[in-house]
Write a protein that binds this DNA or RNA. Structure first.
Lengths: 218, 218
DNA sequence: GCCTAGAGGCTTGCATGCAAGCTTGCACGC
DNA sequence: GCGTGCAAGCTTGCATGCAAGCCTCTAGGC
């Protein structure tokens, strides 16, 4: 059964990638809950593909710490440890502070300014439209922009992992309160200002508050 | 991972794992140089296993950024970008500083003290014996101990990746000068002292110098 | 001599057969 | 009624066949 996907974007790497995204999404959205045991075979049928790509997806997810594979006994969705939120936020803060310091040290803050400005704009519009998902997406891209701007590829890699984890947290624990968005936007404005002024310490201090307010949302 | 079977008869979970360790080691040691193209087929014969476990190993290595897979064209060992050393050291510093701050905040420094003390001891003996590999190993375990002591599982995960990268750097770029070991040990002593005194700022400052001296070794 | 087209050999991605371990549940002996 | 042992069904791990894309090299036309 070899299906040519008439539509789906890349026939190139479709099967394994689709399996991966599908299962990861289900875990992140909480449709597959922590502690639940899942089998390659069951999931492979949903997506109508063979065991191989699903197996590869499971391996990737295990490497990222979202699944835990038990030898010939099946796979279990790794429950979030009680300190997951703190762990993730701490790492975000540490990595982004370092990235910001590097952006400033390299004198690359100017190149970022206009991109950050338009993201602030976007967030501002999202608040007016009361569109939380759009706001969160722009929020995430704001932080990513700073990290990518540092040119530190390792930081970029780590951030991708952290983003998945944080999304999972958001789905399972965090309640985003609308009145919080405005405060968040103010933080972002301060972050952009600190970058523009080359003040790494101020960046770190504001980021610390910013992240702390996320922690408060648990 | 599973060392109970010392005999080749039934390598419980060996094949895929062995393939992974073998290739990763070759990349880290520089036996497979950056830019070199490698094929699953060629390597699978060296280890006398089939394509599947080697394929899985390639996928893992690609996920970690050590290989770059090109669709139906083969795999290439990812060359280290020029800023690799800076990127890795920056992340090490950021993550370990955060971990130390958390150890202090949690009042867990006392639990670490004796383990760190014995590692300092070990390093001291390694200097007298002029045994650089042992020194480096103890060095690495010193930093790992602090990070594991923080209880931040994400930091532990990231650190494993960074350790591989740094080993690769060491093999390809760094020259460890023996006279540097003593200075390194002094740094470690200061780090342990800062932890014991609960001074996160001093820890971060010393770590910064420590890492900077590594950077100087390029 | 040069350019182009095509065939063959390489590569990986996926499907599937087979092996082996773990769990469960039933049947049989006591 | 209770305990033990075996068998069947699940699970994954590995081997291998097949498909399909890409590169190279050669042969033929100009």
């Amino acid at each position: 059964m070899n299906f040519e996907n008439d539509e789906s974007a890349s026939p190139a790497q479709a099967a394994a990638e689709r399996a991966y995204e599908h299962v990861k999404g289900a875990i992140i959205r909480g449709e597959l809950a922590g502690g639940e045991s899942v089998s390659e075979n069951a999931l492979r049928r949903e997506l109508d593909l063979s065991r191989t790509p699903m197996h590869e997806a499971f391996l990737r997810l295990a490497a990222e710490g979202l699944l835990s594979l038990e030898h010939r006994r099946g796979a279990v969705v790794r429950p979030m440890p009680p300190h997951e939120a703190r762990d993730v936020l701490e790492m975000r803060e540490a990595i982004e502070s370092a990235a910001a310091a590097r952006v400033i040290a390299d004198g690359a803050a100017g190149d970022l300014a206009s991109a950050l400005e338009s993201l602030l704009e976007e967030q501002s519009r999202a608040i007016e439209a009361e569109d939380v998902p759009v706001f969160i997406d722009a929020d995430s891209r704001f932080h990513s922009a700073v990290i990518e701007g540092s040119g530190n590829t390792v930081a970029v890699m780590f951030t991708a992992t952290l983003r998945d984890r944080q999304q999972r947290l958001r789905h399972q624990l965090m309640r985003v309160r609308p009145e919080q968005l405005q405060a968040s936007l103010e933080h972002h404005r301060e972050l952009a200002r600190a970058l523009a002024e080359g003040d790494a310490t101020a960046y770190a201090r504001t980021l610390h508050e910013h992240v702390a307010s996320h922690r408060g949302a648990l």
